[in-house]
């Protein structure tokens, strides 16, 4: 486990691309005291660590796959109608410096 510190909290926020208002880091830090105690409580439940993590509410699987039939796409003007940052039919952002590979593994 990564130790919860105020720096870690701020880093989490930064990675989620928002800034916390003054006082919020402290509040989260305090909340973590509660959360960690609750995590310890979960840890103490008999058999919990032998259980299979559950994502779906029940075990029924799906067999459905979509047929590879393209549908008519939405017109660009409509599709981008909610964007306030456009040039023509493209979305514009401040210049993305370098390329993605500078930061991401694909």
């Amino acid at each position: 486990m990564i130790k919860v510190t105020k720096e870690v909290i701020d880093l989490c926020a930064e990675n989620l691309l928002f800034k916390l208002n003054p006082g919020q880091t402290d509040l989260i830090y305090e909340e973590f005291n509660t959360i960690m105690a609750q995590i310890d409580f979960l840890k103490g439940i008999k058999g919990v660590d032998d259980a299979e993590p559950m994502t779906f509410p029940y075990s029924e699987h799906q067999r459905f796959l979509r047929q590879d039939k393209p549908i008519k796409p939405v017109k660009a003007e409509l599709e981008l109608s909610n964007s306030h940052s456009r040039i023509g039919n493209q979305i514009k952002l401040p210049k993305v410096v370098g390329n993605k590979n500078d930061e991401m593994d694909e």
Partner: peptide
Amino acid sequence: PEMFNRAQKARRL
């Protein structure tokens, strides 16, 4: 493993 997965395991129980 300690947090999200443990909660998912508790959900299973």
